[in-house]
Design a protein around this nucleic acid. Sequence first.
RNA 1: UGGGGGAUCGUUCAAUGGUAGGACGGUUGACUCUGGAUCAACUAAUCGGGGUUCGACUCCCUGUCCCCCAGCCA
Length: 567
Amino acid sequence: MTSGDRPGPRNFIEEIVEEDIRTGKYGGRVHTRFPPEPNGYLHIGHAKAICISYGIADKYNGLYNLRFDDTNPTREEQQYIDAIKEDIRWLGFDWEDREYYASDYYEQLYEWGLQLIRKGKAYVDDLTAEQIREHRGTLTTPGKESPFRNRSVEENLGLFERMRKGDFPDGSRVLRAKIDMAAANMNMRDPVMYRILHATHPRTGDKWCIYPTYDWAHGQSDSIEGITHSLCSLEFENHRPLYDWFLEELEVHHPQQIEFARLNLNYTITSTRKLRTLVEEEFVSGWDDPRMPTLSAMRRRGYTPEAIRRFCDNVGVAKADNVIDIAKLEHYLREDLNKTAPRVMAVLRPLKLVIDNYPEDKIEELDAVNNPEDPSMGMRKVPFSRLLYIEQDDFREEPPPKYYRLAPGREVRLRYAYFVKCVDVVKDKDGKVIEVHCTYDPETRGGDAPDGRKVKATLHWVSSAQAIRAEVRLYDRLFTRSDPNEVEGEGKDFRANLNANSLETLTDCRLEPSLSSVKASDRYQFERLGYFCVDPDSRVDKLIFNRTVSLRDTWAKIEEAQEKGKG
RNA sequence: UGGGGGAUCGUUCAAUGGUAGGACGGUUGACUCUGGAUCAACUAAUCGGGGUUCGACUCCCUGUCCCCCAGCCA
């Protein structure tokens, strides 16, 4: 694609990139990267960042790297590296052979540390962490210089080399940049570049016992990779002057950092630390619990990568803090699933329906459309018989206003089958309706009445004898508050806002027999209910479906309004 | 009370001195063998106060509010 047929800039980052291409700032080159720390799983917020960086590279015929910012061995694990790669691949992005690790650059970083020491721009500090904090000053008062700040180059060199050799215990010394302890920007008050950590690194093992801080590693890693545009979130804006300082002192390739606002979703947390808390304290079953906003959880729940990418492409890129309505995510999910998910009939909360005038032993195979949005998906047969299940919600002994479904004396259509009319009900000793009796009109086979009469409702159903049993897990939002971090009361946190009803497990669901050979992660629309996805724990003898998202439900809205009206 | 950012429909992103627009949500209607989908219409905003200008979301002055920074986390 040439720049001529490329659509114009869609956001301020693309404007900057286009300007840089125009002026030949990096020789017209565009090279971005996504730099996750492997200390947890990727979530929907990361998806936005990935889409932005990858999208820019793609749009401007550039390259895209994946780089793990693995500078803290005490929190990082190989399992996270593996999971992150899987998630990015699933999202549909290919970094080809450009998979890098900040730990690949440890030797170079160390050399550069030496270089800064020789320039008199870095020094080994013997202060404790607490003393360093005290010396740093506050937001409104300048810091004090460390007594070790003016050691000779030779002494610093010797000490730094011994730090690497392992002569000193954890926390006893650090290497700091010598910048300005009175800087208004706290990041410039002699930031730490190396700390001593006798920890095993997932990739470098025990080779190192000093590790670069993120601030020292990040900008140079971008530089080494020839990154042109380092896109990151807003909180690193304050760090940019520091990265610029390092790069200038080192006189190396200088990428341009551009910050944008990270994605937030209402009723959701997107903090790796807090998500880990939910996992570790077993509020959820794991990082891939379908209620989590992690990509692995969304995948398990039935989200499609296409839907997530469409969502990310449509939330916009700006610098203002934002909280996106989860309804927007669900909109793009439904939009995609509506086009791609085969339709099928499933009854979640079964209620027996007996067709009194239908022959006892008769079974008909009726034609059903697999996807009205896509005729190429074809047709299937669905068995019909005298004894069926319908949804408990689809019958009311005393129907409220605007309730179109089945009720005593009412006639409705059974999808793809016949018109049926309720003639009787059977109740248990508590007065609960356990069986609905109907008569059917044989003239309406297939679902249309030759006499032209209409019904207000069409119900889904499953033939009892042929039905398959399944477990279906219904998910609701994980938090009850739009802002899960908003708490009332002392000492409370987001955990106080967990939704106790975020998971409802239905164990007595009945599915049409065409579903007998489903595989994990297969997606379907259960007609009139929602989109469902086969869980990886599902087995042939015990099918398990996750509700990905419900269908838009006009009746639920009416009913809710009626409830409110009463209250 | 230092420094760095940011304020436009309910939400989110546009409009870069010339008719404030899109998406989501909401409401109403049409259509429908899914109360789905689809289609149509409607709803609704420039943080406040000054100024420059024929004309200001945009430029200037001033005020207010919000976010980030005092990890040897990233």
